[in-house]
């Protein structure tokens, strides 16, 4: 996947050794996901699937799970997230990173840590409360100036942010298969980080019209437009908005 994953672990009642063991399992899981889904590695299962060398039932169960999630994300985004229409063939990378981070967090949660955060290249899955009763406070960066915070969000499960500001034109419009840049950045909160990641990507490609489609889902979104305007769906848990960000 070639991304940066950071962990923030509050072990609670666990000993340090127990918490480190859980971290080691979470890292092993990320290794395994990378081995399965890396499009960099020619012999990876996902590449064998892409080249038509292996049927889905011959591949690890995780590949099937991810395919299902990709299909779900496609339906939830009115087709704007489409892992099947990317240059080079089926590519679940836009969903796998968040999905893997969510599973790594699951390892920590299963081990019984009091609170934890897994941040995969800016897409964040959290568990528990970092301090007292307050939820994890996650800052969304200002697309016009990455050193600035646009707003802070109370996150209880996951948040993903996608945008055109850091990777250039990395969002592919499945209709035209060309790069699209409708909004500067989109952040999505909800239960599954993989889906949130895919939806954030879809909104950047499809624009603010897609916000309406989230109404019937457990996901909420916040969009920052190139002019600096911020729009959010009802229920998006914005904590504060800094002056000048809107």
């Amino acid at each position: 996947m070639g991304t940066v994953v950071s962990f923030d672990v509050r072990p609670g009642d666990l000993t340090e050794a127990e918490a480190r063991d859980a971290l080691a399992r979470a890292c092993t899981l990320l290794h395994d996901v990378d081995a399965t889904f890396s499009t960099w590695k020619p012999a990876s299962p996902i590449n064998r699937f892409r080249r038509g060398e292996a049927r889905i039932e011959e591949l690890p169960d995780e590949v099937y799970d991810v395919l299902e999630l990709c299909a779900l994300a496609g339906r939830m985004s009115n087709g704007w997230f489409d892992a099947w229409s990317l240059p080079g063939g089926f590519d679940p990378t836009g969903l796998v990173k968040g999905w893997a981070a969510g599973r790594a967090l699951g390892e920590l949660r299963a081990a019984g840590v009091a609170a934890a955060m897994v941040n995969a290249g800016g897409d964040i899955a959290v568990h528990g409360r970092p301090a007292g009763d307050r939820p994890w406070a996650i800052a969304i960066t200002n697309p016009a100036d990455q050193s600035q915070v646009a707003c802070v969000v109370d996150v209880v499960a996951s948040i993903a942010t996608s945008g055109t500001y850091e990777r250039g034109d990395h969002i592919i419009d499945p209709g035209t298969r060309s790069a699209s840049s409708v909004v500067a950045s989109a952040s999505v909160v909800g239960p599954d980080l993989g889906i949130a990641d895919a939806l954030a990507t879809a909104i950047v490609a499809g624009g603010v019209e897609l916000l309406a489609t989230l109404r019937t889902t457990p996901y909420a979104a916040l969009v920052i437009e190139h002019e600096g305007a911020i729009r959010a769906t009802p229920g998006f848990p914005v904590q504060v908005a800094s002056p000048g960000s809107g």
């Binding site: 991304t3 940066v4 950071s6 923030d8 990173k97 955060m117 941040n119 290249g121 800016g122 897409d123 964040i124 970092p130 994890w136 406070a137 996650i138 800052a139 969304i140 960066t141 697309p143 990455q146 915070v149 802070v152 969000v153 948040i159 993903a160 942010t161 996608s162 945008g163 055109t164 500001y165 850091e166 990777r167 250039g168 990395h170 950045s185 952040s187």
Partner: peptide, 27 residues
């Protein structure tokens, strides 16, 4: 840069971490 950002963010009191789009070499 992610390491640096994450490290510094965990030293602030306003928020715990930062959600942002993925980096590329230029950025």
């Amino acid at each position: 840069p992610v390491l640096i950002q994450d490290t510094l963010v965990s030293g602030t009191t306003d928020y715990d971490h930062v959600s942002s789009a993925t980096y590329t070499s230029k950025a």
